[in-house]
Design a protein around this nucleic acid. Structure first.
Lengths: 340, 340
DNA sequence: CTGTTAGCGCATTCAA
DNA sequence: TTGAATGCGCTAACAG
């Protein structure tokens, strides 16, 4: 009843188990004739190598941990798919973990690598705890984010350019007072998007009014609160750039709750192009990141790392602006809001 | 440099490796004195058991596959969290996979269990391929769904009662013409919700008009299309029950696109209470499933199964109706829609 | 209660 | 090119 082992194959093929192992793992180190004999015996017995034994012997696990900033963000689902697809195609498995802004949680996943429960770590968190340096770093790929002070293989987008893309679009629509709701500024990625916002305004010869930047947390309610704060401030604006879509949807609903029309009074552009960007009312114009591809590329880089292939080169993936209906030309109507 | 093994601990403690193993795995099978000696040596050497060796020897992997109906549904993120938390706390790891309505994908995950890459399978898909029966079933827990024809340990909610909860609520608001947008009727779970809908109407003494039921697919666009279909039909209605929130949001947007007000003209109730239920406009009234708890309970049942504890009893978890703003009393205004 | 012994299934030396 | 022998790190009989 138990599965056939390499021994059964060896017996049937009339060779040693070493030869069977070689015929399967290093086909070129064996004569054509014996390889065929072995393969036939493999088929006849229905032999499937015991992955656990293989991994144990090779001192690898085939597991890779995908550690994300906030697992409740649907954004990461597509990332996961990309990672998982490429992993599966190459015989790896993916364990997704939630960093949850908690150093302990991050360390616990690093421990998994040290305990031989996983081979490497794909980090999609904005930070790593100091304690991670208490031992040699495991194989790590950093994706979407950058970590201050450590140089690691990275898959990312150009966050500055991506933010500028959104701003230039709004400027092209005639907007000159553009507000920005940021993510947590303790992290590099939200800071970069903010820099892109400022740089694009400056490049367009527009003033950068600090009162038009509000810091938030990437969540729905944070977007709502940020709008309240903007609206209760003295500075007027006709457009709003949000560093992710979840905040943008919150912002839109808060604007409408205050009786403002989107995009009639205020244009809104988000970031990420999550599923619910289409579902919001109005459908959200947003900067799309190639999520699936980011996941795929991250896993590919991890495999390069694990299998010792030439230094993986960092990669910057392209983004695009998806035009929907939440941004419109700056109108007279909107100017009223501006002059409010 | 390489990690200390059990041998180093044995040497330091002055006992055999078997005793070290026992002191750690079966503490009650050694004397207090030796246990303390061993534990001290463990601490001194910094020994951490090599999980791979342990699992290899025990012929278990510590991996559990969570196979979901559609990984792009944010609903499953909280499920995953529940599963993962309980798994981690008990030394297990979770691999999430996407069934994607594809028998091949499902079989491929079943194969993972047979190849000793995982110990068991938590199924959150509406169906299992026939081919699964070509070999003895691996340890399986079915959650949220029921699979026709196989009796397996199950964690679920009472879908009929949950649907009835929504319908009774709408009836209580004075609605008598209530439409229903279902999920894919090939699966048991959507059928049960539909039965609940019919039963609740009948129990309230209301007619069940087949023209008011439209079959869809649990997706946003499906919800939109279903509303188009309802609106172009002859049968009028003042309320709408959707078998999940994603469709409900699509439905609301489609209703508003047709110039109908929610809940002014039509009341809408969804199912699942996903994050974006709050974010829709108006915020969606919905039946909430205890996602995290469902995940936790599923993993707990899986562990019982794997560790051979007494037959795990099936569990039915409670749901609740979360009242927001998408449903309102049936008004004169709404009656107009009814009489349209 | 503890130590000795014998593997788990495979990859990889080393000789032949 | 192949086979015999060794051991990865640990658990689980079995004796003592």
């Amino acid at each position: 009843m138990s599965a056939p082992t390499i021994r059964a194959v060896a017996e049937l093929a009339g060779v040693s188990i070493a030869t069977v192992s070689r015929a399967l793992s290093h086909p070129d180190k064996v004569t054509d004739a014996t390889r065929e004999k072995v393969l036939a015996a493999v088929k006849a017995t229905g032999f499937i190598p015991n992955r656990q034994a293989v991994d144990f012997r090779r001192r690898s696990t085939g597991n890779v941990v995908l550690l994300v900033r906030d697992i409740s963000n649907p954004f990461y689902l597509d990332i996961y798919r990309g990672v998982e697809e490429h992993a599966y195609a190459n015989g790896y498995r993916v364990l997704m973990g939630d960093a949850g802004h908690d150093d302990q949680r991050i360390l616990r996943y690093v421990e998994m690598v040290r305990n031989r429960q996983a081979d490497g770590l794909i980090l999609m968190t904005g930070r790593v705890p100091e304690a991670i340096h208490s031992a040699p770093l495991p194989p790590i790929v950093v994706s979407l984010e950058l970590v201050d002070g450590v140089r690691l293989p990275t898959i990312a987008i150009d966050n500055r350019a991506a933010a500028a893309l959104a701003i230039n679009y709004l400027v092209g629509l005639g907007h000159s007072r553009i507000a920005h709701i940021t993510g947590p500024m303790t992290d590099v990625m939200p800071r970069q998007r903010h820099e892109g916002y400022r740089a694009a305004l400056a490049a367009a010869g527009l003033p950068v009014d600090p009162a038009l930047t509000v810091h938030a947390d990437f969540h729905y309610e944070g977007g709502q609160r940020a709008v309240e704060q903007l609206l209760s401030g003295a500075a007027a604006f006709t457009a709003l750039f949000c560093s992710n879509d979840e905040m943008a949807v919150g912002a839109i609903n808060a604007l409408r709750a205050r009786g403002l029309s989107v995009p009639g009074d205020i244009s809104v552009v988000g970031f990420d192009d999550i599923v619910f960007a289409t579902a919001s009312d109005p459908p959200l114009t947003s900067v799309r990141q190639p999520r699936r591809e980011i996941g795929r590329a991250s896993m590919a880089m991890m495999i390069d790392l694990l299998e010792g292939r030439a230094d993986p080169a960092n990669a910057i993936l392209p983004v695009e602006l998806v035009e929907r209906a939440s941004a419109a030309p700056c109108t007279v109507n909107a100017r009223r809001a501006l002059l409010r």
